[in-house]
């Protein structure tokens, strides 16, 4: 157990070090979702969006839940990228030739991605606060939002790592990533409520786990516990299932790749 924690601490620190050496990349990772989506998109559509439809006092306050979950989505789906590079340049092989527990590398990645994503979610909520979005459920609500984000993030990171271990080249990886990310966002309740979507899009969006997450986060910000709790209960159930599926698939891909 002592050895296990020594390995995981060292491997997690490596990810932190890498991020801190890539200052520009860090800055953009942190700033991009709030700049592009929350500040630009939120303010841009302030008057174009019908507040009767979004059922909120401003479009930004409606959008905040969407941006939070989008951030979880993008970070999760990109969570395997560093392992992909490690696989391609042989560093992963070096790590795996040491007497570490076979799961340590992956676990360190989960810890790292989850921590970074949570920090980012807090920053987004703070920026939204400046634009007058004050979560009505308070700090307990923010904690619940983080929990939902983590649960969704674990499954997504597992998908991303499974892809990293399975793809032949990193070109494939980024093609799939690019193809997945935007449709997931458009086919969810991130930008528009389900009821206001064209029928077929709304239909598809119901099956998107992202929609479930957003539908739980949004009432935590806008409405209050009474409206949020049923959704929160539901999303936790859905995420347990989603994570179990993703982790199972990820473990299989990992075992195939590492043997």
């Amino acid at each position: 157990m002592k050895e296990y924690s020594q390995e995981i601490r060292a491997l997690t620190m490596r990810w932190v070090r890498r991020l801190s050496r890539e200052k520009f990349s860090m800055l953009f990772t942190l700033v991009q979702p709030m700049l592009f989506w929350l500040i630009f998109f939120g303010n841009l559509f302030q008057r174009a969006a019908d507040l009767q439809v979004t059922q909120s006092s401003s479009y930004i306050s409606f959008l905040t839940a969407g941006v939070v979950v989008m951030t979880v989505l993008n970070n999760g789906l990109a969570g395997g990228v560093d392992l992909l590079f490690d696989k391609e340049n042989g560093f992963l092989e070096r790590l795996m030739s040491t007497p570490i527990h076979r799961t340590s590398v992956i676990l360190s990645r989960f810890i790292f991605v989850t921590t970074i994503t949570s920090l980012q979610v807090l920053v987004i909520l703070a920026v939204a606060w400046l634009f007058g979005v004050h979560p009505v459920t308070g700090l307990a609500g923010v904690a619940t939002i983080l929990l939902i984000g983590m649960m969704f993030g674990v499954g997504l990171t597992a998908i991303s790592m499974a892809m990293a271990f399975s793809v032949k080249s990193h070109g494939d990886f980024f093609s799939v990533l690019g193809f997945l990310s935007l449709p997931m966002i458009f086919l969810s309740s991130a930008l528009v409520p389900l009821a206001a979507m064209p029928g077929w899009m709304g239909f598809l969006a119901q099956f998107n786990p992202m929609t479930w997450a957003i539908d739980a986060v949004r009432p935590l910000i806008l409405q209050g516990w009474a409206e949020a709790l049923p959704h929160v209960g539901m999303v936790i159930g859905v995420m347990v299932l989603f994570d179990a599926l993703c982790l199972y698939g990820g473990a299989r891909a990992f075992r195939r790749a590492i043997g």
């Binding site: 390995e7 491997l11 040491t98 007497p99």
Partner: peptide
Amino acid sequence: AIDRFLTGREHLELLADLYH
């Protein structure tokens, strides 16, 4: 098979932890 962002010493420190 080297991490471009880590220093030489950090490589060895990482491996020292992995070899416990």
